[in-house]
Design a binder for these strands. Structure first.
Lengths: 169, 169
DNA sequence: CTTTTATTAGCACAGTTGTATTATAAAAAT
DNA sequence: ATTTTTATAATACAACTGTGCTAATAAAAG
C-alpha cells in the first residue's frame, strides 16, 4: 500500500485533492473501487475465455486456470493490487467478508463442470482436489510475486499445467 | 504492519521511545530482528523434529512439512508476522534478497532425502514436485490466514497429508 | 438569462510517524 | 574515586496522512 495515499493517487490522476475527494469521499471508498476494478477486469477476461468455443473443453478449462496466474506484467500488477488490498482490508475486520475472492468457489465450479464432462480421474476426492488446486494457484502466484527471478511466467504455467494433467485422465 | 510502529512496539515492551531506540537505531533494524526471531523459532522447532528418531523417516518428513503450516494459534501469529514483514521488505528492494525464506531450498532438500530413502514414487519430476509442494504449503497457509473459518488447522493438515501421500508410494 | 448543480483547487487541521537531541540515572571500567 | 559506557526518559522536529472546509469556476438546467 506504499504509494496508495490519497495525495499520491490524486497526483497520478492529475487531480487536486479536492477534486478527487469529490468522487471518493474517503480513502476506503477509493481502494474498494480499485479492488472492484481489478476484479471486474479479471472476471471479464475469464468470461471471454469461457465463451470462446474454439477450444476444446479441457483446453478451455486449462486456459481459465492459467488466467488466474500472474504470467505477464499486466496480471502481475493486478495481482499485487489485489494482494495488497486484501491484506489491507483484512486488518479492518469490518465488512471484509463481503469482499471475498470467489476464486475458491470458481475452482470448485470448474472442477465440477470438468467432472460432468468426464475429464477427471474417477478416484479423486473433489473437495480435497479443489482445495489443493486453489492452494497451488495462489501459492504459485505468491511465489511469482516474491521471487520473480526464479519463479517466472513460463515456469508457473508449466507447473500448473502439470498439476492439471495429474487431475485429468 | 498496522501496529508495528516504533511507538507501538515501545509501549508493548514497556519502554520509552528513547530506551527502545538505544537497542534499535532504526525501525528497519527492529523489524529485521523480529523477522529473524520468527525464523529462528521455526527453524528450532523443525530441527527438533528432525533430530527426533522416535518417528519413522516418512512420518518425520511429514511432520516437518506440517510444521510449516499455521495449524495452531502460535504458528498463525508467526506466519502473520513473517508474511507482513515479507511484503513490507519486498517494497524496499534494498537488500531484500538476503532475507529470503529458504523454505524452497528446504523443501527440495527434504524431497531429496525422501528420495534417497526410497520413499518417493519413481516417476516423479522432482523439481516440479518441489515447486508444487512449496506452492501447496504457502497457498494453504495464505488461505488459512485469509479465510480462517473455512480453512482451519485440521483441514489444511488433512490436505497436506493427502498431497504428501500422493508423492510417497 | 438566471439559477442551480457539478467540478476543481487550495488550504487548514489534527493526528501519526520515524528519527534526532538532550538530559539524567545507573553500572562498569579505569 | 573518577571517568566512561550503558540505559532510560522526555521532548522536539519535520514529514506525511486522511479528512474537513471554503471559495472559485465550469457546466447544466430551469
Amino acid at each position: 500500500m506504499e504509494g496508495a495515499t490519497v495525495r499520491g493517487i490524486a497526483k497520478e490522476a492529475g487531480l487536486s485533492l479536492g477534486a478527487l475527494r469529490h468522487y471518493f469521499a474517503t480513502q476506503d471508498e477509493l481502494l474498494m473501487y480499485a479492488m472492484q476494478l481489478v476484479k471486474e477486469r479479471a472476471t471479464a477476461r475469464i468470461a471471454e475465455i469461457s465463451a470462446n468455443e474454439k477450444w476444446a473443453p479441457k483446453e478451455r478449462i486449462t486456459k481459465i486456470f492459467l488466467e488466474l496466474l500472474p504470467t505477464n506484467q499486466e496480471k502481475m500488477v493486478e495481482m499485487e493490487v489485489w494482494f495488497a488490498f486484501t491484506v489491507y482490508f483484512r486488518h479492518k475486520k469490518d465488512g471484509f467478508d463481503a469482499q471475498h475472492d470467489g476464486i475458491y468457489a470458481a475452482v470448485r465450479k470448474l472442477l465440477d463442470s470438468a467432472d460432468q464432462l468426464n475429464l477427471l480421474r474417477k478416484e479423486l476426492d473433489k473437495e480435497m482436489e479443489a482445495e489443493k488446486l486453489y492452494a497451488v494457484i495462489d501459492g504459485l502466484a505468491l511465489h511469482a510475486y516474491l521471487e520473480p527471478q526464479r519463479v517466472n511466467g513460463e515456469w508457473i504455467t508449466k507447473v500448473l499445467e502439470h498439476h492439471l494433467a495429474s487431475l485429468f485422465h
